[in-house]
């Protein structure tokens, strides 16, 4: 039953996404403008770091290649999730205007419908930018590429995307109760990816502990990246903690799934 539910969800997700991509391509000019605009936004986002490094050689003890590595990994992981789940912040609006009901009368899981709704291909801009910067940093980093480090790189990106996905889903679930509070989600998603673009040494250890034990954003890229870069853990955790990223990701997704189920149940018992 659970397996067929997952299959149905993925199938519906693919169907709806396919439809949106086709409809986006019907307005090709508009799509190109939006994609370029998105790319420009993300480029300017990195321009801050470029401008900072025009004045200094290191931030928090990390040089430009290292900060770019952090930026590239954070941005790629976030970009993957934003592409796949970016529409989830519209849940609150759907609850308010009553269109959530129309999703509940269709024979496919609601989560898949919400995630695929208004799928915006233009969001690949961030992934392109993230991968490009990651590539640049890899060429300029001075890293001893042992097999564990090579392995950790893709694992980090996928786990990071999954942790962000859990945040998107949990944030959307929260909107079943607080339908006006979509912006809270941005604090954790956009705020999270911005924070992770900088070295953990820039922030206070309390803040690093908070994003380790309360909201485990540090597993998106910080801890795995520190292992790859051969740097010590800022809050004294063992060096291999970066390898726990997939486990953390699975736990986050499970919790987010529970939160989503609870949110949907609350909606179906109150209707508002």
């Amino acid at each position: 039953m659970a397996e067929s539910q997952l299959y149905q969800g993925l199938r519906a997700y693919a169907l709806i996404v396919g439809m949106w991509v086709r409809s986006t391509m019907a307005y090709r000019t508009s799509f190109v403008i939006m994609a370029l605009g998105n790319l420009a936004i993300t480029a300017l986002d990195f321009a801050v770091i470029g401008l900072m490094f025009s004045h200094v050689d290191a931030l928090g003890g990390f040089d430009l290649a290292e900060v770019t590595f952090l930026y590239g990994t954070s941005s790629t992981a976030f970009g993957l999730t934003d592409l796949a789940f970016g529409s989830m912040e519209r849940v609150g609006r759907r609850v308010r205007d009553g269109t959530m009901d129309t999703l509940l009368v269709r024979p496919v899981p609601v989560l898949a419908q919400v995630a695929a709704d208004r799928f915006a291909l233009r969001r690949v801009g961030r992934i392109i930018q993230g991968v490009a910067l990651l590539g640049w940093s890899l060429a300029h980093l001075d890293v001893n590429w042992t097999w564990d480090r090579v392995l950790l790189l893709p694992v980090m990106l996928l786990s990071g995307a999954a942790i962000f996905a859990a945040l998107f889903v949990a944030g959307a679930a929260f909107q079943f109760w607080a339908s006006d509070a979509a912006e809270v989600q941005s604090a954790f998603t956009y705020g999270g990816t911005t924070m992770l673009q900088f070295p953990p040494t820039v922030f206070t250890t309390e803040l690093v502990r908070a994003v380790t034990f309360v909201l485990p954003l540090a597993f998106v890229n910080w801890f795995p990246a520190l292992h790859i870069l051969g740097r010590p853990n800022p809050i004294g955790l063992p060096d291999g903690i970066g390898f726990a990223a997939p486990l953390v990701a699975v736990a986050c997704c499970a919790l987010a799934g529970l939160a989503w189920g609870a949110g949907l149940r609350a909606y179906r018992s109150t209707g508002s």
Binding site: H55, L59, G60, A187, Y190, F198, V202
Partner: peptide, 12 residues
């Protein structure tokens, strides 16, 4: 966001 940006500026 204020907190995040503030710490990056402190580093700068």
């Amino acid at each position: 966001f204020g907190f995040i940006v503030a710490y990056t500026y402190i580093a700068l």
